[in-house]
């Protein structure tokens, strides 16, 4: 006991620390960069902490936030990502429920097609979409981004959710129906709450995809009408195009990360494993 378990605990702690450092170092560096002043970066300031006189305080953040284009991009990103997530999750929930519960012809086809879409290289679609969107007037609009985001996240959401639905015993719906529920009521009041961890998992995955996307964001937009934050950051050039404002960019990146962290924290509380325990004798 004593020695062995203490050693193991120490080992786990060291391992965890290594992984944490590995994962968080770039984030920490961006944060450190965002607090350095532009001049000190131009002059060279390799340390983690700002060199003497190189500390910019919140200046970079204020500057980034006061940029109209940046605020507009944040707003675009939040709006587009949330709408895409919401629609994708609703459609995926209904589709996955049908796939999990109904026997119908072409079920295999639907699932394989979904998987094929998920594996399709995104970049190859950008050209055709660009042409098509310009032709039908979706270029540089919110729907123009929401639609591709949805179609690329739906497959994964459907697969995740149908796995969750399959785990829910049939008796749950049957009990609800005997208790007087319509199929829709049984679905809404019993099945969806039980599949909530799955729904939120799918939501997080979809939101990540939409929030992080750069290829569509830069190719299918031309103004701040719809340009999302990753694309917008690449336009953050400042006054001198040959001398990019690295600290300002870093501050913008940090700000762009905040919504993701908030969303994950909110959703994570909903992803409680073992929510279905106690439904049936197991």
């Amino acid at each position: 006991m004593g020695n062995g378990s203490a050693l193991r605990k120490a080992g786990i702690a060291v391992g965890a620390l290594l992984i944490l450092v590995w994962c968080l170092l770039p984030v920490a560096w961006i944060i450190s960069l965002s607090f350095k002043s532009q001049e000190s970066i131009t002059n060279g300031s390799p340390g983690f902490f700002p060199a003497d006189g190189g500390f910019a305080g919140w200046d970079n953040y204020v500057a980034a936030w006061e940029n109209d284009q940046f605020r507009r991009a944040i707003f675009n990103s939040i709006g587009i990502s949330l709408i895409a997530t919401l629609l994708s999750v609703i459609v995926a929930t209904l589709a996955a429920y049908a796939i999990a519960r109904l026997e119908f012809k072409g079920k295999k086809l639907v699932l394989t097609t979904a998987l094929a879409i998920a594996m399709f290289p995104v970049v190859s679609l950008v050209g055709p979409l660009f042409d098509l969107w310009r032709a039908i007037g979706l270029y540089d609009t919110w729907p123009g981004l929401i639609i591709p985001y949805m179609s690329f996240t739906l497959p994964l959401a459907i697969w995740t959710l149908s796995a969750f639905f399959r785990e829910i015993p049939w008796e749950m719906e049957q009990a609800a129906q005997v208790d007087g529920a319509t199929s829709w009521q049984a679905f809404r009041k019993v099945i969806v709450p039980l599949a909530a961890p799955g729904v939120f998992t799918a939501a997080i995955l979809t939101f990540f995809f939409a929030w992080n996307d750069f290829v569509f964001g830069i190719s299918l937009t031309s103004t701040e009408a719809a340009r999302p934050i990753p694309a917008s950051l690449s336009f953050f050039v400042g006054a001198d195009p040959f001398n990019r404002p690295a600290s300002l960019l870093a501050a913008g990146a940090v700000i762009a990360t905040i919504p993701i962290i908030v969303i994950v924290l909110v959703f994570q509380r909903k992803i409680v494993a073992g929510l279905t325990s106690g439904a049936v004798k197991g």
Binding site: P169, M172, Q174, A176, A279, K281
Partner: peptide, 12 residues
């Protein structure tokens, strides 16, 4: 009214 073999209670 029906009582199921595995009870089928609503866990949420």
């Amino acid at each position: 009214a029906m009582v199921f073999q595995n009870y089928a209670l609503y866990p949420h």
